[in-house]
């Protein structure tokens, strides 16, 4: 077990280092001369060169990368010249609200997708299963923004019971303080995520249902419900844990779009605005953070699976 954890840790560190190389190269390749980017097109070539020299942008690529890595290791993600703020501060300002939106939606999605998938597996090929399969298929085939627009049309424009824009409050806990204003973004994100997970959960549950131990449990005299809750649920959820780890990039992408559509001030909106400003330090700073988050999520998921599955504990 310890060996497994160590090995996963080592590969995670390697992957994170790889990510830092890629973001560095992108930063370097995209913003070209940082001096030009900051001083603007009117600045003279000499001024740009002087700026680059002063900030070390004229050194060899490797030297620059090592400097960048050193910076990262100290927790410094760079500086946004466009907003004249450190990237750290920008991300920190918005992280709480995004974490809250993404977290609440994820928890809701798992709470819906797991029972839904198990139900569909047990009642496979019934009318209910077919209806649900079709619904999840539609949601799965729908870009996030389209679902958002549909919900806005129905609840904001049609029924007029919910605001079409998210709360602009800077409070981290706005979901709980202004639930009405946050319902549509949460619903959108949850809906898309449910579509993603329930299909998977259904097939994972089907796999488990076909296992011999399920039949043995039935032969012991357990009712189907007891078989599901005592035997199947845990084993059918282990693959989902891995899937959640792997789909963090998709969840963050969904979050980005939802924040842009509902104008919810979080990391996604920051990223969207930075795109339009070509503010690469911010873009790559968030990308790096998101990648590290993904690596950590995968690591965590693998560890959770390892801990809850006795078969992996022998190593």
């Amino acid at each position: 077990m310890t060996q497994y954890v160590l090995r996963r840790l080592v590969t995670s560190v390697i992957v994170v280092l790889g990510v830092s190389v890629i973001t560095f190269m992108l930063l370097h390749g995209m913003s070209g001369s940082p001096g030009r980017a900051i001083l603007g097109v009117q600045a003279s070539a000499e001024a740009v060169a002087a700026f680059d020299r002063e900030h070390g942008y004229d050194r060899s690529l490797i030297a620059q990368y090592l400097a960048y890595l050193g910076q990262l290791l100290q927790g410094d993600l760079g500086h946004s010249y466009k907003l004249n703020q450190s990237v750290n501060a920008l991300l920190a300002d918005n992280a709480g609200r995004t974490a809250m939106l993404a977290g609440v939606s994820l928890v809701l999605a798992v709470c819906v997708a797991v029972p839904l998938g198990v139900f569909q597996a047990v009642k496979r090929n019934s009318v209910g299963d077919n209806v649900l399969t079709t619904l999840t298929f539609v949601a799965y085939s729908m870009p996030v923004f389209l679902l958002a627009m549909l919900l806005i049309q129905v609840f904001a424009l049609g029924l007029g019971i919910l605001p079409a824009q998210a709360s602009q409050s800077s409070s981290t806990f706005v979901i709980f303080t202004e639930p009405r204003a946050m319902l549509l973004p949460v619903l959108t994100l949850t809906g898309i995520t449910v579509a993603l997970y329930s299909r998977y959960q259904r097939s994972a549950a089907l796999d488990q249902l076909a296992q011999d131990y399920i039949r043995v449990a039935r032969a012991k005299g357990l009712s189907m419900r007891m078989v599901l809750t005592r035997h199947l649920l845990r084993n059918a959820c282990l693959p989902l844990v891995t899937l959640i780890g792997m789909t963090i990039p998709l969840l963050l992408a969904g979050n980005l779009v939802v924040e842009s559509v509902f104008n919810y001030p979080g990391l996604g909106l920051l990223f969207f605005n930075s795109l339009n400003n070509q503010d690469y330090p911010v873009l790559l700073g968030y990308t790096l953070v998101a990648s590290v988050l993904t690596v950590l999520g995968n690591l965590l998921a693998d560890l959770v699976v390892a801990v809850s599955d006795p078969r992996t504990q022998r190593a």
Binding site: Y213, V216, A219, K220, H231, N235, L238, P310, R311
Partner: peptide, 16 residues
């Protein structure tokens, strides 16, 4: 009535 099945390798719940 109780039953014993063929394959003992897959007949037990691996996580219990």
């Amino acid at each position: 009535i109780a039953m014993v099945f063929q394959d003992p390798m897959t007949s037990l719940n691996p996580t219990k």
